[in-house]
Write a protein that binds this DNA or RNA. Structure first.
Lengths: 202, 202
DNA sequence: ATATTGTTTTAAACTGCATTTAAAACGAAA
DNA sequence: TTTCGTTTTAAATGCAGTTTAAAACAATAT
């Protein structure tokens, strides 16, 4: 065995941090090697290329961060409660990883073609059971048919987008980090209410 | 005078297209020169550096595309009508430039630090008059105080975000381009309704 | 018409860094 | 001591952004 058992992991972790922080294309393999404290060529030994490493990291990031959310959506919770929990859990995840959304958006531009092929992404979006619940709820109160696609898009938009434009929100409202977090915390209830209003009769 | 009066413009236009399409960091100066049909060195002659050119392009993109929107927000229209027009106009702009949002998000990740310094960005966000109207409306119906910041964020989120995740929406719902556009057209009314509901008493 | 001037264009070179490869060195275990 | 996976070294290759110096050009002044 060699000096350090998990060189691969060190590369993976260092690259993850750097990609999130500086973006894939502004991170060089040398940056990664130096941050991981390993030799330049090891990156190629373990992952065959930078793009390969990126794919692995991206897949991992999505999987890791959607796991709990998918569980909530697929659970047997009643719709109201499910929405509430989902919104709250999603926001908590993003609060813990402030750059996730921004990074993901950047990738969505950078790797547009690739993104659909990555089945992993489907985790983020459109769960059968949840969809059914929304449709059913819409039928009960005879709100003119609720479209689950709009509902879904609204929900994800309102939850995630503020993180992407965080610098603008903070700047315009003169918030520091702490205040921004408080603002986002408020949004949990706010978003839940908006969403419920949109499917419940008044 | 030289062969072509607007070499500078040709560079500017070619670079704009490429940046929007492939991203700044995946577009080389040589790509730009070849697309513009000009000599490599001219890029440096007219703009001093690639980053400089990018700044100019970015500023221009924001200015150009927010001009009409700001006008609406600052107008004397009644709130309902103002919201309706804003949502519709915003969506129309994005439909005409399908990559704008995605590109902007990518830049928000790439140039986080820079972005706040660009005063231009403030055009996008937080207009005094409009803000006042929202607050006033909230007071009328005694909905427990409406927070204009949440309103603003909701509005921009629901309008723009779908364009950023377009590939995912199309994939999951098996939409072609035409159908996606139809979906977005539906959102004009949908979003307007969501927003009005959030500030009007039931 | 010619010379002069400032601008625009060209071709080539420079510098540096990026990613990748191939072969050598190393260390632990068989 | 051979073997194997791992790590290091060194170098190949290529492209990125930028700079230079000279040529071509258009307009004006002589």
């Amino acid at each position: 065995m060699a000096k350090n058992k998990n060189t691969e992991q060190k590369i993976f972790d260092a690259a993850t941090e750097l990609f999130l922080e500086k973006g894939v294309d502004r991170t060089s393999v040398r940056d990664i090697a130096s941050k991981a404290g390993i030799n330049l060529a090891l990156m190629n030994y373990y992952f065959r290329s930078k793009e390969n490493l990126f794919d692995a990291i991206f897949t991992n990031l999505v999987k890791k961060n959607t796991k709990d959310l998918v569980k909530i959506l697929d659970s047997d919770l009643e719709l109201n409660e499910k929405i509430k929990q989902y919104v709250s859990a999603y926001i908590d995840i993003l609060l813990k990883n402030p750059l996730l959304v921004s990074f993901f958006m950047a990738i969505l531009h950078r790797s547009r073609e690739k993104i659909t092929e990555m089945e992993v992404v489907s985790l983020l979006y459109g769960r059968e059971k949840f969809t059914q619940q929304i449709v059913d709820e819409g039928k009960k109160g005879n709100i003119r048919r609720t479209d689950p696609t709009h509902f879904y898009v609204d929900m994800i938009s309102m939850i995630t987008f503020p993180f992407a434009i965080r610098p603008m929100i903070m700047d315009k409202n003169e918030l520091n980090d702490e205040e921004f977090i408080a603002f986002i915390e408020q949004r949990k209830e706010h978003i839940t209410e908006m969403l419920l209003k949109s499917i419940m009769p008044c």
